[in-house]
Amino acid sequence: MYLLSFFLQVPDFSSESLTVKKFVLVHGEGFGAWCWYKIVASLDESGLSPITVDLTGSGFNMTDTNTVSTLEDYSKPLIEYLENLPEEDKVILVGHSTGGASISYALERFPEKISKAIFVCATMVSNGQRPFDVFSEELGSAEKFMKESQFLIYGNGKDEPPTGFMFEKQHMKGLYFNQSPNRDIALAMMSMRPVPLGPMMEKVTLTAERYGKGRRFYVQTLDDLALSPDVQEKLVRENSPEGVYKIKGSDHSPFFSKPQSLHKILLEIAQIP
């Protein structure tokens, strides 16, 4: 595993030298494909092919969040995209926050179609771990959260288990956007949707034979209040990606707070042989 400095220079970048130019950008909890708009523009300007997906019940995918109960359901748009890729094509997957669980699931399903997987302040879970467990230091245990959280949504009625959650706006601003521009915060406040709880609480099955053969990279955000730098460091220690990159001055939404730094890192990783 190697460590890259905070500020990366990508001199004389040419997309012509790359064998894999497709970046599939996977959003995290509550977000949608819309959150990547700055990264889509910069990758496109660099001659690359950014693709975004709305996971089930997110962004413009109008599925009722309360009906999304498994990681398989939640990740279906990503899986369908990969299933329909031409046999000779490969992609670079980029997952933000809990989108890390979806790209891990995809890496287990389609290791042959994924050139590299990039976890951006993301839930890079171990085999048998729940995405929620990664946030337990901030949110408390899953059991406590399910019993006591004021943010839970009971889509099937109060007598049934909760189906989702959504932070209130001021709480969300403090957790996710403490370094982001006001215009991007305004976009997020209008666009964020409830998070399906089932996929967050599901233990992910990952095997050494498939997931373990994938090339994984991690991008740490050093002013992150949703997933602290210490927790991100722990994820890196426990899961040993091929490379680790750090963005100083970034909150939990580097596509808003530090888009140029994130763009440079994506280009740097794309060029690794």
Rank of each mutant, 00 (worst) to 15 (best):
Val244Ser: 07
Lys213Ser: 14
Ser228Ala: 10
Ser257Gln: 02
Asp251His: 02
Phe217Thr: 13
Leu225Asn: 14
Val231Cys: 03
Lys246Gly: 05
Gly214Val: 13
Val244Thr: 08
Glu268Ala: 14
Tyr218Phe: 09
Gln271Ala: 15
Pro259His: 02
Val231Ile: 05
Leu235Ile: 14
Ala270Arg: 09
Leu267Ala: 12
Glu238Met: 15
Phe255Gln: 15
Phe255Arg: 10
Ile269Cys: 02
Asp224His: 10
Ser228Ile: 10
Thr221Val: 13
Ser261Trp: 01
Leu266Val: 03
Pro259Asp: 04
Phe256Glu: 06
Lys248Gly: 08
Gln232Ala: 03
Gly214Trp: 10
Leu267Cys: 15
Gly249Leu: 10
Phe256Asn: 04
Asp230Gln: 12
Pro254Met: 07
Ile269Thr: 06
Phe255Asn: 06
Lys248Glu: 13
Glu268Arg: 15
His252Asn: 02
Arg216Ile: 11
Phe217Met: 13
Gln260Pro: 08
Ser261Gly: 09
Leu225Phe: 07
Ser228Cys: 07
Gly214Phe: 10
Gln220Pro: 11
Lys234Tyr: 05
Pro241Tyr: 00
Ile265Trp: 00
Ile247Glu: 11
His252Thr: 00
Glu233Arg: 15
Ser253Ala: 14
Leu235Phe: 04
Ile265Cys: 01
Lys246Phe: 03
Leu222Val: 09
Glu238Trp: 14
Gly249Trp: 13
His252Gln: 02
Phe255Met: 12
Lys213His: 07
Thr221Gln: 13
Leu235Tyr: 04
Gly243Asp: 00
Leu227Val: 02
Ala226Pro: 09
Gly214Gln: 12
Glu233Gly: 15
Gln220Gly: 14
Arg237Asn: 09
Pro229Met: 03
Val219Leu: 02
Val236Thr: 07
Ser240Asp: 11
Ile265Val: 01
Tyr218Thr: 02
Ala226Glu: 12
Pro259Ala: 01
Leu235Val: 09
Ser250Trp: 04
Val236Glu: 08
Thr221Asp: 13
Tyr245Arg: 07
Tyr245Asn: 13
Pro229Lys: 00
Tyr245Ile: 12
Lys246Glu: 05
Glu242Val: 07
Gly214Pro: 04
Phe217Trp: 10
Ser250Leu: 04
Gln271Asn: 13
Asp251Thr: 00
Val244Trp: 06
Val219Gly: 00
Phe217Pro: 06
Leu225Ser: 08
Pro229Ile: 01
Gln260Phe: 13
Lys234Glu: 11
Leu235Trp: 01
Pro254Ala: 09
Leu262Val: 02
Pro241Arg: 00
Gln271Glu: 08
Asn239Cys: 14
Lys264Pro: 12
Tyr245Ala: 11
Val244Arg: 02
